[in-house]
Design a protein around this nucleic acid. Structure first.
Lengths: 201, 201
DNA sequence: TAGACATTTGAAGGTCAATTCAAATACGCA
DNA sequence: TGCGTATTTGAATTGACCTTCAAATGTCTA
């Protein structure tokens, strides 16, 4: 028998198991048994904690997104220079490689968002928060005279997040010429143009 | 009984039916019965033409992509002015709204591309061709002195396609503030900066 | 240590989808 | 018109998954 765990501990395990299962089989392909296997439990045990698999999947996606977002915030929290901040933020939005689990998970949502309203809402809220993140960096840099923006900070931020997203897809799809470094360079090329800053790294 | 059709006609029908089914249920959620229903046939009839559902789905995605790409080429074929061409190309890469079937279909691939190599290859090849499309417009405009590029045409093209992709996702996910017009404006704002052209439309 | 309770298992059942195939049906062609 | 063949149906089989639940097992506490 698998190790017994408290309700809350087990739920955390199950959410992680669900994340792995989604990455392997897709939001619309995951089965109860996949999650059970990832968690090293039987289907019955999973059902005991989450009578509705759909709810577990939504929670898994939600927690995955939060983790991704908070990681990004944490990475720049200590920094002060807007240019350094911007460069690091761009890099933190890209997968480390085709197998990066966080980005893989987010990518699974792309298609599902069009079909399941919940996922659309989740994805939209993540996008908006990431935009705000960039916007505050750009505004600060602008106020300090480090950046000379060629367009409003909101539009630039929206484009920056959009670029991250798209290259995330390209990288997980294994584009032979575009990996994490190349993608970062492409986004930086945009960022340099619109900020008028060299953005050295 | 459903109308009898020739092998080739029925296969075309089935590919269209599969496209609709994928949009409704996702690549990993489609079932034989879904496709049969869309085609107004029984499962047996579908199996008679495509013994392997997986192959039908790949063909459906493939043909959907080709159609999307050729539509775009056709739209700009008659135009001569690079600026007009660029503007129209940008618009033709965006969905008409959250329900646009072509973009919905493509979006379904995003997640699957990380799991199924075939889909990754398909998606990558579409991306590369779209990049070439932009690149040729930029090169021409540059040669004519209409565009004054702030970076190499390849990088700009990659970013333009990336932006289209990403806003396609935002729109199908029903972002409350970003629709087809707003997305076009955002991409145009980038295009204006990097081409030094007003890109009026 | 014993009893109570929470968690997990494993088996049984029902449902649903894929698959197979013989029979029916419609079409092309002699 | 009638024969032969390609296409489609419908029913039967099989297998997979979900769901339920009684029993087993571990943990906590009195």
């Amino acid at each position: 028998m698998a190790q017994r765990k408290s309700r809350s501990d087990r739920r955390i395990d199950l959410i992680e198991a669900a994340r792995r299962a989604i990455i392997k089989h897709g939001v619309d392909g995951v089965q109860l048994s996949h999650v059970a296997e990832e968690a090293r439990l039987t289907s019955g045990a999973v059902l005991y904690h989450y009578p509705d698999l759909g709810e577990l999947l939504v929670e898994a996606q939600h927690s995955g997104m939060e983790r991704f977002y908070e990681q990004r915030l944490r990475q720049i929290a200590a920094l002060t220079d807007p240019a350094t901040k911007l460069v690091l933020t761009i890099k933190s939005g890209l997968p480390t490689g085709p197998l990066d689990p966080d980005v893989r998970l987010l990518n699974e949502l792309g298609g599902a968002a069009g079909r399941h309203r919940v996922y659309g809402v989740l994805l939209t809220s993540l996008y908006d928060r990431q935009v705000s993140m960039y916007q505050s960096i750009l505004d600060t840099g602008s106020a300090l005279g480090v950046f000379r923006l060629t367009a409003d900070a909101l539009s630039i931020s929206r484009n920056l997040v959009a670029l991250e997203d798209a290259y995330g897809y390209r990288i997980t799809a294994r584009h032979p010429l575009i990996g994490p470094e190349e993608a970062a360079e492409l986004i930086l090329s945009y960022a340099r143009t619109v900020t008028g800053n060299d953005l050295l790294h």
